[in-house]
Design a protein around this nucleic acid. Structure first.
Length: 276
DNA sequence: AGTTAAACCTGGTTGC
DNA sequence: TGCAACCAGGTTTAAC
Protein backbone atom coordinates (compact mmCIF):
# COMPACT_ATOMS: atom_id res chain seq x y z
CA UNK A 1 0.00 0.00 0.00
CA UNK A 2 1.69 2.95 1.29
CA UNK A 3 4.45 4.66 -0.56
CA UNK A 4 5.90 7.98 0.53
CA UNK A 5 2.84 10.13 -0.29
CA UNK A 6 0.53 7.88 1.72
CA UNK A 7 2.95 7.81 4.65
CA UNK A 8 3.31 11.59 4.56
CA UNK A 9 -0.47 12.05 4.38
CA UNK A 10 -0.64 9.85 7.46
CA UNK A 11 2.11 11.76 9.25
CA UNK A 12 0.35 15.06 8.69
CA UNK A 13 -2.87 13.60 10.00
CA UNK A 14 -1.47 12.36 13.26
CA UNK A 15 1.19 14.98 14.06
CA UNK A 16 -1.21 17.60 15.39
CA UNK A 17 -3.35 15.44 17.69
CA UNK A 18 -0.30 13.54 18.96
CA UNK A 19 1.96 16.52 19.65
CA UNK A 20 2.18 16.75 23.43
CA UNK A 21 -0.25 13.89 24.09
CA UNK A 22 0.39 11.75 27.16
CA UNK A 23 0.50 8.00 26.62
CA UNK A 24 -1.76 5.90 28.81
CA UNK A 25 -0.61 2.62 27.35
CA UNK A 26 -0.44 0.42 24.30
CA UNK A 27 -2.40 -2.59 23.13
CA UNK A 28 -0.92 -5.16 20.78
CA UNK A 29 -2.89 -7.60 18.64
CA UNK A 30 -1.46 -10.31 16.44
CA UNK A 31 2.29 -10.21 15.78
CA UNK A 32 3.52 -7.76 13.17
CA UNK A 33 6.76 -7.97 11.22
CA UNK A 34 8.96 -7.49 14.26
CA UNK A 35 8.27 -7.58 18.01
CA UNK A 36 7.59 -4.27 19.77
CA UNK A 37 10.76 -4.58 21.78
CA UNK A 38 9.54 -3.01 25.02
CA UNK A 39 7.08 -4.39 27.57
CA UNK A 40 3.57 -2.97 27.17
CA UNK A 41 3.62 -1.51 30.67
CA UNK A 42 6.62 0.71 29.96
CA UNK A 43 4.82 3.38 27.98
CA UNK A 44 2.53 5.00 30.52
CA UNK A 45 3.23 8.65 31.26
CA UNK A 46 5.45 9.27 28.22
CA UNK A 47 4.81 12.34 26.12
CA UNK A 48 4.66 12.20 22.33
CA UNK A 49 6.83 14.70 20.47
CA UNK A 50 6.85 15.84 16.85
CA UNK A 51 6.01 12.96 14.51
CA UNK A 52 8.68 12.56 11.84
CA UNK A 53 9.14 10.52 8.70
CA UNK A 54 12.15 8.89 7.07
CA UNK A 55 11.36 7.20 3.78
CA UNK A 56 8.26 5.11 4.42
CA UNK A 57 8.89 4.94 8.16
CA UNK A 58 7.18 7.10 10.75
CA UNK A 59 8.95 8.10 13.94
CA UNK A 60 7.00 8.94 17.09
CA UNK A 61 9.36 10.39 19.71
CA UNK A 62 8.40 9.47 23.28
CA UNK A 63 9.75 11.36 26.24
CA UNK A 64 9.32 10.59 29.92
CA UNK A 65 10.70 13.64 31.73
CA UNK A 66 13.67 12.65 33.80
CA UNK A 67 13.57 9.05 32.64
CA UNK A 68 13.96 6.77 29.67
CA UNK A 69 13.21 8.22 26.28
CA UNK A 70 13.08 6.84 22.81
CA UNK A 71 10.32 6.40 20.33
CA UNK A 72 8.27 4.16 18.09
CA UNK A 73 9.37 3.42 14.55
CA UNK A 74 6.35 2.46 12.49
CA UNK A 75 6.01 1.01 9.02
CA UNK A 76 2.72 0.41 7.21
CA UNK A 77 3.94 -2.50 5.09
CA UNK A 78 1.65 -3.37 2.18
CA UNK A 79 -1.76 -3.03 3.76
CA UNK A 80 -1.38 -0.88 6.85
CA UNK A 81 -3.14 2.34 7.74
CA UNK A 82 -3.37 4.46 10.86
CA UNK A 83 -6.54 5.95 12.26
CA UNK A 84 -6.94 8.62 14.93
CA UNK A 85 -9.99 8.11 17.10
CA UNK A 86 -11.09 10.23 20.01
CA UNK A 87 -13.21 7.38 21.30
CA UNK A 88 -11.95 4.06 20.06
CA UNK A 89 -14.42 1.25 19.44
CA UNK A 90 -13.47 -2.34 20.22
CA UNK A 91 -10.51 -3.54 18.19
CA UNK A 92 -11.38 -5.32 14.94
CA UNK A 93 -9.81 -8.45 13.53
CA UNK A 94 -7.02 -6.51 11.81
CA UNK A 95 -6.36 -3.84 14.43
CA UNK A 96 -2.96 -4.91 15.69
CA UNK A 97 -1.64 -1.93 17.61
CA UNK A 98 -3.16 0.87 19.68
CA UNK A 99 -1.34 3.80 21.21
CA UNK A 100 -3.77 5.04 23.83
CA UNK A 101 -3.30 8.65 24.95
CA UNK A 102 -5.13 11.20 27.03
CA UNK A 103 -6.51 12.73 23.82
CA UNK A 104 -7.43 9.68 21.81
CA UNK A 105 -6.18 6.46 20.32
CA UNK A 106 -3.82 5.94 17.39
CA UNK A 107 -4.79 2.61 15.86
CA UNK A 108 -2.91 0.53 13.28
CA UNK A 109 -5.06 -1.61 11.00
CA UNK A 110 -3.01 -4.01 8.89
CA UNK A 111 -4.67 -7.10 7.39
CA UNK A 112 -1.49 -8.60 5.97
CA UNK A 113 0.69 -7.72 8.96
CA UNK A 114 3.75 -6.78 6.93
CA UNK A 115 3.83 -3.56 8.89
CA UNK A 116 5.77 -2.97 12.07
CA UNK A 117 5.87 -1.00 15.30
CA UNK A 118 9.25 -1.13 16.98
CA UNK A 119 10.49 0.68 20.06
CA UNK A 120 13.96 2.17 19.78
CA UNK A 121 15.96 4.37 22.17
CA UNK A 122 16.61 6.73 19.25
CA UNK A 123 16.57 7.04 15.49
CA UNK A 124 20.33 6.65 15.45
CA UNK A 125 20.33 3.67 17.82
CA UNK A 126 19.49 0.03 17.29
CA UNK A 127 17.07 -1.25 16.20
CA UNK A 128 15.91 1.87 14.31
CA UNK A 129 19.35 2.73 12.95
CA UNK A 130 19.75 -0.71 11.47
CA UNK A 131 16.41 -0.49 9.67
CA UNK A 132 17.17 2.95 8.27
CA UNK A 133 20.84 2.59 7.47
CA UNK A 134 20.53 1.65 3.82
CA UNK A 135 17.96 4.28 2.92
CA UNK A 136 18.86 6.74 0.18
CA UNK A 137 18.13 10.44 -0.07
CA UNK A 138 14.76 12.01 0.69
CA UNK A 139 13.18 13.00 -2.64
CA UNK A 140 12.65 16.63 -1.69
CA UNK A 141 16.01 17.11 0.01
CA UNK A 142 17.75 20.09 -1.61
CA UNK A 143 21.03 18.20 -1.31
CA UNK A 144 19.73 15.71 -3.84
CA UNK A 145 20.87 17.65 -6.90
CA UNK A 146 20.51 16.31 -10.46
CA UNK A 147 24.26 15.85 -10.51
CA UNK A 148 24.32 13.79 -7.32
CA UNK A 149 21.36 11.75 -8.48
CA UNK A 150 23.12 11.04 -11.75
CA UNK A 151 26.35 10.11 -10.00
CA UNK A 152 24.55 7.70 -7.69
CA UNK A 153 22.71 6.06 -10.57
CA UNK A 154 25.98 5.79 -12.44
CA UNK A 155 27.23 3.31 -9.86
CA UNK A 156 24.33 0.93 -10.29
CA UNK A 157 24.12 -1.67 -13.02
CA UNK A 158 20.67 -2.96 -12.11
CA UNK A 159 17.61 -1.92 -14.14
CA UNK A 160 16.50 1.60 -13.24
CA UNK A 161 13.12 0.32 -11.99
CA UNK A 162 14.83 -2.05 -9.56
CA UNK A 163 17.14 0.71 -8.35
CA UNK A 164 14.19 3.02 -7.68
CA UNK A 165 12.33 0.28 -5.81
CA UNK A 166 15.33 -0.55 -3.65
CA UNK A 167 15.25 2.95 -2.18
CA UNK A 168 19.03 2.93 -1.85
CA UNK A 169 19.52 5.94 -4.10
CA UNK A 170 16.28 7.76 -3.31
CA UNK A 171 13.54 6.68 -0.93
CA UNK A 172 9.82 7.00 -1.35
CA UNK A 173 8.88 5.66 -4.76
CA UNK A 174 7.25 2.24 -4.50
CA UNK A 175 5.74 0.22 -7.29
CA UNK A 176 3.05 2.68 -8.37
CA UNK A 177 5.10 5.86 -8.35
CA UNK A 178 8.26 4.26 -9.76
CA UNK A 179 6.21 3.09 -12.77
CA UNK A 180 4.48 6.45 -13.13
CA UNK A 181 7.68 8.50 -12.84
CA UNK A 182 9.48 6.37 -15.42
CA UNK A 183 6.59 6.88 -17.81
CA UNK A 184 6.57 10.60 -17.15
CA UNK A 185 10.30 10.72 -17.86
CA UNK A 186 10.02 8.56 -20.99
CA UNK A 187 12.52 6.04 -19.64
CA UNK A 188 12.28 2.28 -20.21
CA UNK A 189 12.13 0.45 -16.87
CA UNK A 190 14.69 -2.15 -17.97
CA UNK A 191 17.36 0.41 -18.82
CA UNK A 192 20.46 -0.09 -16.67
CA UNK A 193 20.74 2.72 -14.15
CA UNK A 194 24.33 3.47 -15.10
CA UNK A 195 23.29 4.04 -18.71
CA UNK A 196 21.16 7.09 -17.98
CA UNK A 197 22.64 10.23 -19.46
CA UNK A 198 22.87 13.29 -17.27
CA UNK A 199 19.90 15.01 -18.89
CA UNK A 200 17.77 11.90 -18.58
CA UNK A 201 18.74 11.47 -14.93
CA UNK A 202 17.72 15.06 -14.32
CA UNK A 203 14.45 14.47 -16.12
CA UNK A 204 13.81 11.37 -14.01
CA UNK A 205 14.49 13.23 -10.78
CA UNK A 206 12.03 15.92 -11.83
CA UNK A 207 9.47 13.29 -12.80
CA UNK A 208 9.84 11.54 -9.45
CA UNK A 209 9.36 14.78 -7.57
CA UNK A 210 6.37 15.81 -9.65
CA UNK A 211 4.76 12.39 -9.32
CA UNK A 212 5.22 12.21 -5.56
CA UNK A 213 4.11 15.81 -5.04
CA UNK A 214 0.99 15.35 -7.14
CA UNK A 215 0.09 12.14 -5.31
CA UNK A 216 0.60 13.87 -1.98
CA UNK A 217 -1.66 16.73 -3.05
CA UNK A 218 -4.34 14.20 -4.00
CA UNK A 219 -4.17 12.40 -0.67
CA UNK A 220 -2.22 9.44 -2.00
CA UNK A 221 -3.47 6.32 -3.78
CA UNK A 222 -6.09 3.92 -2.47
CA UNK A 223 -5.98 0.55 -4.21
CA UNK A 224 -7.73 -1.42 -1.48
CA UNK A 225 -6.75 -0.66 2.05
CA UNK A 226 -5.25 2.76 2.32
CA UNK A 227 -7.07 5.57 4.03
CA UNK A 228 -5.87 8.62 5.88
CA UNK A 229 -6.25 8.99 9.63
CA UNK A 230 -9.86 10.14 9.22
CA UNK A 231 -10.74 7.20 7.02
CA UNK A 232 -10.60 9.10 3.72
CA UNK A 233 -9.34 7.38 0.57
CA UNK A 234 -6.72 8.88 -1.73
CA UNK A 235 -7.52 9.75 -5.32
CA UNK A 236 -4.25 9.48 -7.21
CA UNK A 237 -4.82 5.96 -8.52
CA UNK A 238 -7.49 7.23 -10.91
CA UNK A 239 -4.93 9.42 -12.64
CA UNK A 240 -2.29 6.73 -13.08
CA UNK A 241 -1.03 6.64 -16.66
CA UNK A 242 0.43 3.14 -16.62
CA UNK A 243 0.08 1.45 -13.22
CA UNK A 244 -2.58 -1.25 -13.29
CA UNK A 245 -3.40 -0.51 -16.94
CA UNK A 246 -1.99 -3.58 -18.71
CA UNK A 247 -3.53 -3.97 -22.17
CA UNK A 248 -5.19 -0.56 -22.09
CA UNK A 249 -4.34 2.33 -24.38
CA UNK A 250 -1.42 4.60 -23.58
CA UNK A 251 -2.71 8.07 -22.75
CA UNK A 252 0.06 9.53 -24.89
CA UNK A 253 0.40 7.36 -28.00
CA UNK A 254 -2.59 5.01 -27.86
CA UNK A 255 -0.40 1.92 -27.88
CA UNK A 256 -0.88 -0.96 -25.45
CA UNK A 257 0.46 -0.71 -21.92
CA UNK A 258 2.54 -3.74 -21.08
CA UNK A 259 3.22 -5.57 -17.85
CA UNK A 260 6.49 -7.34 -17.10
CA UNK A 261 7.98 -8.72 -13.90
CA UNK A 262 11.10 -7.09 -12.49
CA UNK A 263 12.52 -7.96 -9.09
CA UNK A 264 9.39 -10.00 -8.38
CA UNK A 265 7.15 -6.99 -8.92
CA UNK A 266 4.87 -6.00 -11.77
CA UNK A 267 6.20 -3.17 -13.92
CA UNK A 268 3.74 -1.32 -16.14
CA UNK A 269 5.08 0.72 -19.05
CA UNK A 270 4.51 1.91 -22.59
CA UNK A 271 7.04 0.31 -24.95
CA UNK A 272 6.57 3.12 -27.44
CA UNK A 273 6.86 6.13 -25.15
CA UNK A 274 9.58 4.77 -22.86
CA UNK A 275 12.97 4.42 -24.54
CA UNK A 276 16.05 2.46 -23.53
C1' DA B 1 27.49 -6.63 -6.83
C1' DG B 2 23.34 -8.42 -9.27
C1' DT B 3 19.70 -11.30 -9.79
C1' DT B 4 16.65 -14.51 -8.11
C1' DA B 5 13.67 -16.80 -5.03
C1' DA B 6 11.45 -17.37 -0.75
C1' DA B 7 9.64 -15.61 3.31
C1' DC B 8 6.36 -12.96 6.22
C1' DC B 9 0.23 -12.71 5.87
C1' DT B 10 -4.82 -11.98 4.41
C1' DG B 11 -8.18 -11.25 1.08
C1' DG B 12 -10.04 -9.94 -3.40
C1' DT B 13 -10.57 -11.30 -8.18
C1' DT B 14 -10.49 -14.49 -12.01
C1' DG B 15 -11.19 -18.62 -14.31
C1' DC B 16 -12.49 -23.41 -14.72
C1' DT C 1 -21.49 -22.53 -6.17
C1' DG C 2 -16.85 -24.25 -5.18
C1' DC C 3 -12.24 -24.20 -5.45
C1' DA C 4 -7.67 -23.35 -7.21
C1' DA C 5 -4.66 -19.98 -9.02
C1' DC C 6 -3.06 -15.60 -9.15
C1' DC C 7 -2.73 -10.94 -7.73
C1' DA C 8 -1.77 -6.97 -4.33
C1' DG C 9 1.03 -0.40 -2.16
C1' DG C 10 7.05 -3.63 1.13
C1' DT C 11 11.17 -5.31 2.87
C1' DT C 12 14.53 -8.77 4.64
C1' DT C 13 17.26 -12.81 4.15
C1' DA C 14 19.56 -16.40 1.78
C1' DA C 15 21.48 -18.55 -2.11
C1' DC C 16 23.65 -18.82 -6.71
Amino acid sequence: MPELPEVEVTRRGIATPLRGAIVHGVRVGKPLRWPLGLPEGEFAGQMVGEVGRRGKYLWLPLVLPGAAHGGLLMHLGMSGSLAWQTSAPAAGAHDHFDLVTNRGTLRLNDPRRFGAVVWSPGLDRAPAARLLQRLGAEPFDADLTPQRFHEALHQRRAPIKAVLLSGEVMVGAGNIYACEALFRAGIHPALRADRLSRPRAQRLLEALRQTLAQALAMGGSTLRDFSDVHGMSGAYQTSAAVYGREGQACVQCGGQIRRVIQAQRSTFFCPHCQKR
